[in-house]
Simulated assay, not measured.
Amino acid sequence: MLKRTMIIVLFFSLFLSAVPKEAAATGSAWAVIDADTGRLLEGYNENVRLPIASLTKIWTALTFIESGSSFGDVTISPQASSAEGSSIYLKQGMHIDAETLLYGLMLRSGNDAAHALSEQAGGSLEGFVDLMNDKALVYGLKRTVFTNPSGLHDDHHLSTAYETALMLRYAMDNDKFREIAMTKNHRYEGEDQIYSWRNKHRLLHSESTAIAGKTGFTKTAGRTLATYFEKDGKNIIVVTLNHSDDWNTHKNLADKVFSSYKLTTVAKKGTYAILPGVEMELKNSIRLLLKKGEKAKLQNIVRIPKGKSEKSTGLWTVLFDNEPLIASEIIIKQ
């Protein structure tokens, strides 16, 4: 009986040692995407809905910037000055420009800055959250719901590692957001206050390939992290949710993807004869991150307008596994 028990215990121990580290962390997830196309390159639980903590502020910043709200002075309300959680120590009644609040939001994760920006652009915190959710739907983030602009815990405030990576991808397409998110240090001198902020994202200061990102933490969400990496023309985004060793995880995942994926030209710029008397011009080459064996999964579809005209435009679309991945405008000459 004793021998049988020892065998069972040994078998159970071997089983546990075979479980991947990711699976041992309940409620954790990660995703690596191609920042140019949004394609998922690597992931674990990437579509599981989880709390994202202050990674929420990526969407808060983009929503404010694209709202058309003034970048002028914002008067800090009692509610903003007393916002729960991380703070840049705004005082009730003070006046500070919205751009500075955006830096405080992204570099120092100020919940008071998030509240003040929300009131400025949405008329109220609730009104701004509606804008955030509307924008999420417009961008196709179907598994993302916001209940506040800061990332404070709420059972309904959830996203996924994959959609959070997409948030950073869409936000980095905005020049103002990109400028702020890439800033390592920012100094502001107002009439009554001076701020000097260092970006909390450690990798921006230690890794040359990490150019932007956002940190996050709540007791429920654990540590959350988003990083935008660039290397040799390759652009990727890494997101981890509820990972304690997130700095090393991001570096390791980025290194793995950069080494295993090549930037491959799948369509060269130039002029192509597609029909008798009809040519098309592709002005820029189409390049994709592909690993060994993936090129066989690509398809090219060219759409040209009906009718005859001396010059018109069409679309060259590249599909991966029968799903549209990237498209480029072409000029049709007849």
Rank of each mutant, 00 (worst) to 15 (best):
H157P: 08
D154E: 08
H115M: 15
K292W: 00
K219Q: 11
S86K: 10
L204P: 10
Y170H: 12
V145R: 14
S67G: 05
G216V: 05
M182W: 04
F229I: 03
E22K: 03
R108Y: 14
K297I: 00
I58R: 13
P149C: 03
E163C: 02
M106F: 06
E191Y: 11
Y261Q: 08
L290H: 11
G85Q: 03
P20M: 01
F258L: 07
N235K: 15
G110D: 04
K268H: 13
P78N: 01
Y272S: 01
L158V: 09
K219V: 04
K135M: 09
I8A: 10
I331L: 14
K292I: 00
W59S: 02
H95K: 15
K295N: 07
V48E: 14
I52E: 05
I236R: 05
K3A: 07
L289M: 12
D246F: 15
L225C: 12
I326Q: 10
Y44S: 09
A80F: 01
Y272Q: 07
A296D: 15
Y139Q: 11
S159F: 07
L298S: 06
G85W: 01
H186D: 03
S69A: 15
A116N: 09
S285D: 04
P324L: 06
I8M: 07
I52C: 03
I180E: 08
R223N: 11
F146W: 07
I58C: 01
F320M: 06
L90S: 05
E22A: 14
